[in-house]
Design a protein around this nucleic acid. Structure first.
Lengths: 219, 219
DNA sequence: GTCGAAAATATAATCGATTTTTTGAATCCG
DNA sequence: CGGATTCAAAAAATCGATTATATTTTCGAC
């Protein structure tokens, strides 16, 4: 019958992968630190096999560093790496934005407006930070989604995670944050109006300002 | 002493990863096919744990598709995907080439000449194809190596592998191949002369011609 | 014959234990 | 003392077996 016997088709490996990815991006592990596998095992109450599979995936994704025979380490935080990440994010997101604006359809416009609205509301009602982060990521993904390139989106997602490791660790900058929030709405306006160049310039500025905030994590 | 007691620090997991990566890029698995884990286990004479870790890495890298509770599949080959891969490769390699030319030093110039020479020689003496492929990859990596962005190089490497899945499967096109080989030397000349724009244009053409060859794998 | 349910089989995922390698401390010459 | 060497403890990697899930087959009712 209509029983919720719906199988999500999930696996311990994937669950722990998602959890660890979140925790790594959120800076819950000290940068540069060695990963104590058996401690994780205890902490997350998970077996060794699924845990190791998740760690292997995370290393291939770039959120961990794998060293043969000596396990996994959390990547360090340093300015040069952040420069690289921010620069690549800028290049790729600007590229994707152009394509998204040119290819986005009416359905996309609605979703984009909705995502921006939810983000704005979460900010005004000062929701828990994790809630806001979720909606923020969702907004940026929605904005670029119709760019037409699965690989481009994949790389951008990866860079976004890398970038967020720094940004979430940086000290709060309320004024800048407010400015960044306003830019989200401006991005929507320009995107819906089809103003490619202006939207691209705004995106550059948006990422640059975020970069300035994220820099605070490097000292 | 000079004893070859050099510790490679390798692991079964990494060995099987490298082997599988090679075999996947070389098209030794049918596209779209489900991966029979226990068959691989036998074939490569490896245990289940290291094998699964390697498969997880390959899925995160994009050479396999992981589906919870139903194992791994080899990605299919289709034109749209190839278009995406080639287009991204073009964008990113052109970007990297500019930076590499601007930042490459004398040491790089020597290595680039050497890599081009080895590639040319392998072609003239008709070495085994695997030898040539190795040197070809090495040449392209050397060309872009000093671009200064680890992430850019990482993405390019990934796309190169994806692209090669198609190219190596495509029927031979000796005439085009010869033209592509000449372009390698021209790329070196332009790069060493610091002619950024011309080198970029040549790179675009090079990737486009390779794309035309690779298209042959789609029918 | 065919559709659907239920048992049987095959495969994926996970566990617990073992082996291998690294790390860190203690020891031994020079 | 300093530097290498050995040994013990810790950690990583791997194995063999078990459990859970998907897939195939069988079987009975229509």
């Amino acid at each position: 019958m209509g029983t919720p016997k719906r199988k999500g088709g999930t696996t311990r490996s994937s669950l722990i992968y998602d959890t660890l990815r979140q925790d790594l991006v959120n800076g819950r592990f000290k940068a540069g630190e060695k990963v104590a596998i058996s401690a994780l095992k205890e902490h997350y109450e998970v077996g060794l096999s699924p845990l190791r599979e998740a760690l292997n995936r995370l290393a291939a994704y770039g959120l961990l560093i794998q060293e043969n025979q000596r396990g996994f380490r959390v990547p360090g935080l340093n300015r040069e790496e952040l420069d690289d990440i921010a620069e690549m994010r800028r290049e790729l997101e600007v590229m994707a934005l152009k394509r998204a604006i040119e290819r986005g359809n009416a359905e996309w416009e609605s979703e984009l407006l909705a995502a921006a609205h939810r983000l704005r509301r979460a900010d005004e009602t000062s929701q828990p930070v994790e809630e806001w982060e979720q909606l923020h990521g969702k907004f940026h993904r929605t904005l670029l989604a119709p760019c037409g390139s699965a690989w481009l989106l994949r790389f951008i997602e990866q860079l976004y995670d890398q970038f967020d490791r720094y940004r979430r660790l940086a000290p709060p900058a309320p004024q800048m944050r407010e400015h960044l929030n306003r830019q989200h709405d401006q991005l929507v306006t320009l995107a819906l109006a089809g103003k490619v160049t202006e939207a691209q310039e705004l995106m550059e500025d948006h990422i640059h300002r975020s970069y300035l905030v994220a820099l605070g994590a490097c000292q």
